[in-house]
């Protein structure tokens, strides 16, 4: 029973952290209708900024969170404005040229980081690292718990932002029907840039939360990018509620898969869910929950 409970809690906490990374991606995919393969690399940039802030300014990651997010917002905004956005609507033989561009950008960004910081593993030990809570035979690592709380707060804030503010409504309108949004006087281009910045900032937040938990190296983002896809497809493009539930489902599936089937198979479960959803529930959970 304790094993089950432990597995469950690990899954939920991890799922919350996945969700914040995926929400950034789902937002961008919703508005731009493309897969953003630079998402993971940008998350990793956020982690390195956090690393620098910790090592040189002594900022705890939870404090560095805000400046890191602002920095990544700006980077994302500029990237979209001056690079990815320029390719939009260009007719090419390979239809997915924007996607390939995000891919190439992701590789380039990773290389820049590798040249600056080398590919060595880095790890930081801010306060709270490695502290546990013991509860009915289960152990809960404090940074996981805090990470989960922060992620949930951001998801809630985002949800509120999208539902209640004019800017948020413009984002939603653009993602539902770009042409209609333009007719209504929305500057779709600027909204797209903004959304890309916002999505990137959220990814960075997810990365920063991971800092007290894992090693950092330039290619650290690979699995997280995959998970963000899985969740986005599972939850439905552009759906925050979908991304949150998708994150939790993936976290739980991986956690139970690793515990009861073997750690090496945890990741496969995510991909299998992914394929099944793609094939049998196109549109994802959004179709069921309706938002």
């Amino acid at each position: 029973m304790a094993l089950f409970g432990q597995t469950f809690i690990t899954g939920v906490l991890m799922g919350g952290i996945y969700a914040i990374i995926a929400i950034g991606m789902t937002l961008v995919m919703g508005v731009m209708k493309i897969i953003n393969l630079a998402h993971g690399a940008l998350m990793m940039v956020g982690m390195y900024i956090c690393l620098v802030l910790f090592e040189h300014a002594g900022l705890h990651p939870y404090v560095a969170l805000i400046p890191t997010m602002i920095a990544l917002f700006i980077i994302g905004y500029l990237l979209q404005k001056y690079s990815i956005g320029r390719v939009s609507g260009v007719e090419t033989i390979i239809p997915e040229s924007q996607v390939l561009l995000t891919l190439a950008l992701g590789l380039a960004i990773t290389e820049v980081i590798r040249v600056i910081f080398t590919s060595n593993y880095q790890i930081i030990h801010p306060a709270l690292t490695g502290e546990y809570w013991h509860l009915a035979g289960m152990t809960i690592e404090i940074p996981y718990l805090i990470g989960f709380v922060i992620a949930t707060i951001f998801v809630a804030l985002l949800h509120f932002f999208l539902a209640r503010t004019d800017l948020g409504q413009s984002v939603i309108a653009t993602s539902q029907d770009k042409d209609a949004a333009v007719y209504m006087g929305i500057n779709a281009e600027r909204i797209t840039n903004f959304t890309f910045g916002l999505g990137t900032a959220l990814a960075a937040a997810g990365g920063v939360i991971l800092m007290p938990l894992f090693y950092l190296y330039p290619h650290v983002w690979h699995p997280y990018l995959m998970k963000a896809f899985v969740i986005t497809i599972l939850g439905g493009m552009g759906s925050t509620v979908g991304a949150l539930s998708g994150g939790l489902i993936l976290g739980l599936a991986e956690s139970f898969g690793s515990t009861y089937w073997g750690p090496q198979w945890g990741e496969v479960i995510g991909f299998i869910i992914f394929l099944l959803i793609l094939l049998f529930l196109p549109g994802g959970l959004k179709r069921i929950i309706g938002r």
Binding site: I34, I35, P95, E96, V99, M226, F229, V230, I233, Q264, W265, E267, V268, F271, I272, F274, L275, L278, L279, P282
Partner: peptide, 25 residues
């Protein structure tokens, strides 16, 4: 091939990862 556009791309990406993991394990 039932999937169109980016969804096909993503499905192939996922299969790539699955097969790599399967062959590793």
């Amino acid at each position: 091939f039932r999937l169109r556009g980016p969804y096909f791309a993503l499905a192939m990406l996922a299969l790539n990862e699955i097969i790599a993991i399967v062959f590793t394990n």
